[in-house]
């Protein structure tokens, strides 16, 4: 970065010459970190995904260009891909429906309770992700109050929640909820509450005022929150493993099993790459559609 030739005006002004250099210096630790812990592993993963098996020796692979690994991975695990995106989408929508009113309340109505409520939102992070998901096994257990309640109403297709897709989606919704609430809160908190009054004054009923003013202004938070929920949820394997049955497994599960049990590293890496590619495409289309750059 520092090799760029100095601009002609630089001779007259010291500050214009210095400012960019300091900027690059600030980037350095981050770039170094990402280079070692992100770029190198990604390249390794790419190479692994193209490796060929060594005949007769299970779990040992050699450098190659086996594009068929990708085809194999897709044909073997397409149901997991579909489940991943369906579960993640439902969880994202549920999280949005739960988080929006809550974030709205914290931003506009909580008053002096605001700080406390924000602490409560992040409080679950004080306990480990794994532990909390295990706790959900108890909460959703077949003898538990929740399952009994819904069973009494005859609302559950399998008469249970644990080890069903419902359990997985509930777990995903719960675990990623704070990642939805916080960006929504950040976006809503920036909105001047007088805009609501102005909309009311200009003949907008409360709901119309929300739809025409608050919702569009909160879109950056909606986009950030849905991405922060959808992306990790679609790659998650803990919730499917602990709260679902084997037939509810997601891509994350497939990757984990291939890496650690089958020791089929090329297929596991290919799965990771396909997942990444699909997420990037979805995110790209989504951001384009939401048109966030057009919003203030």
């Amino acid at each position: 970065m520092a090799t760029t030739t100095s601009t002609p005006v630089a001779a007259t002004s010291v500050s214009t010459q210095r400012r960019p250099r300091t900027g690059y210096l600030l980037l350095l630790p981050g770039i170094a970190w990402l280079a070692v812990f992100f770029v190198v592993p990604i390249i390794t993963l790419l190479i692994t995904s193209l490796q060929a098996p060594v005949p007769g020796r299970s779990g040992v692979y050699t450098l190659g260009f086996e594009v068929s690994n990708y085809a194999d991975a897709l044909s073997a695990y397409w149901p997991q891909f579909i489940r991943s995106f369906v579960y993640a989408s439902i969880a994202t929508i549920l999280a949005l429906l739960l988080a929006y009113p809550l974030a709205y309340f914290i931003a506009f109505k909580a008053g002096r309770w605001r700080a406390l409520m924000l602490v409560l939102v992040v409080a679950p992070f004080f306990a480990s992700f794994l532990l909390r998901t295990y706790a959900w096994r108890t909460i959703l257990s077949d003898e538990g109050a929740i399952t009994s309640f819904f069973n009494a109403l005859n609302l559950l297709p399998d008469n249970r929640i644990l080890n069903t897709p419902i359990g997985v989606v509930l777990g995903l919704t719960y675990n990623f909820l704070p990642f939805m609430i916080l960006p929504l809160y950040a976006a809503l908190e920036k909105i001047d509450p007088r805009l609501i009054e102005a909309a009311n004054d200009l003949y907008a009923r409360p709901f119309t005022g929300f739809r025409k003013v608050i919702w569009p202004l909160s879109l950056p938070g909606v986009v950030a929150g849905t991405l922060l929920t959808f992306i990790p949820a679609s790659g998650d394997f803990i919730n499917a493993r602990l709260l679902g049955s084997p037939s509810d497994s997601m891509v994350g599960t497939a990757i984990q099993v291939n890496f650690l049990q089958f020791r089929d590293y090329p297929v596991a890496s290919a799965l990771s790459f396909i997942l990444m590619a699909i997420i990037l495409t979805v995110v790209f289309i989504y951001i384009r559609r939401a048109g966030t750059e057009d919003l203030v």
Binding site: D192, R194, L195, E197, A198, A199, N200, D201, L202, Y203, A204, R205, P206, G209, V213, P216, L217, L295, V296
Partner: peptide
């Protein structure tokens, strides 16, 4: 009468224009 039904309009302090 609710605000959105009143035949009265306001110029707010610091305007409260819709930024979007």
């Amino acid at each position: 009468l609710k605000a959105f039904k009143r035949p009265v309009n306001t110029v707010f302090q610091s305007y409260a224009l819709f930024p979007h």
